[in-house]
């Protein structure tokens, strides 16, 4: 474990917590007897969260953590896997099933056909992998899928008029975690002999590059202290 990877995992954890906080806000807000102004805005405008991206991430964790009960790495590793699995599936459940949260989900805008991402990633994983075993192919699939999983969310953000802070921070933290992982891979490459994982590195690089334009607009909105807005 190195500082880059720990920072990456904590950033990833933060992104999940921000999303859970946002869902909690929507839930508690609608529970009020009087519609406060914030609640009104929250409930009227869409949450800006893409269910498609959440479903893709649940699939990423489900296929990546198949070894959670067979290969014990560390208590930290197991706990983090359980957190990511539990949070991703519960977020999908909230947006799909929860009587209040689902109202803030705008399915007419979240139209990305994410099935078109799953199949190519699966085919690619069958062709390019480190070892042709069930677990290894699904693990490679999870890497390819995670690289593109943010696309529905980024496209939804382009369509969302006013991106609220929590959603913007969620996407930023999600992009930042993989950027920190790239530093972790560089560090491990120079400190651990035989540590070479081209598939992981290239997928992680592609994933981070997909956030490039979001990062640009995110930082300029911070610098100019204006609302985050992605060009359509």
């Amino acid at each position: 474990m190195n500082i880059f990877r720990l920072a990456g995992d904590m950033t990833h954890l933060m992104s999940v917590l921000v999303l859970l906080l946002k869902i909690h806000t929507i839930k508690s807000c609608a529970g009020k007897s009087y519609p406060c102004s914030l609640c009104f805005i929250l409930l009227e405008s869409s949450s800006g969260i893409s269910l498609k991206t959440q479903e893709l991430y649940a699939l990423v964790f489900a296929t990546r953590y198949l070894d959670i009960f067979t290969d014990f790495i560390s208590v930290y590793n197991t706990i983090m896997k359980l957190i990511f699995l539990g949070s991703s599936f519960s977020i999908v459940w909230y947006i799909r099933r929860h009587k209040i949260v689902r109202r803030s989900y705008d399915k007419d805008q979240d139209t990305f056909r994410h099935f078109f991402l799953v199949l190519p990633c699966l085919l690619l994983a069958l062709i390019i992998n480190e070892k042709f075993t069930f677990k290894e192919v699904l693990w490679t699939f999870s890497l390819y899928l995670e690289a593109v999983a943010i696309l529905p969310q980024l496209i939804l953000l382009q369509r969302t008029r006013n991106i609220d802070n929590l959603t913007g921070q969620y996407v930023f933290l999600l992009g930042a975690y993989r950027a920190l992982y790239i530093l972790n891979w560089i560090y491990r490459y120079f400190t651990e002999p035989h540590y070479v994982h081209w598939i992981t590195w290239i997928s992680g690089l592609v994933q981070t590059l997909l956030y490039a334009d979001f990062f640009y607009y995110y930082f300029s909105s911070l610098k100019n202290n204006v609302k985050l807005k992605l060009p359509a």
């Binding site: 990833h12 790495i73 896997k81 070892k131 290894e136 992981t200």
Partner: peptide, 10 residues
């Protein structure tokens, strides 16, 4: 040696 590749990253 047949090293079973264990992925130690999340």
């Amino acid at each position: 040696p047949l090293t079973v590749e264990v992925h130690d990253e999340l």
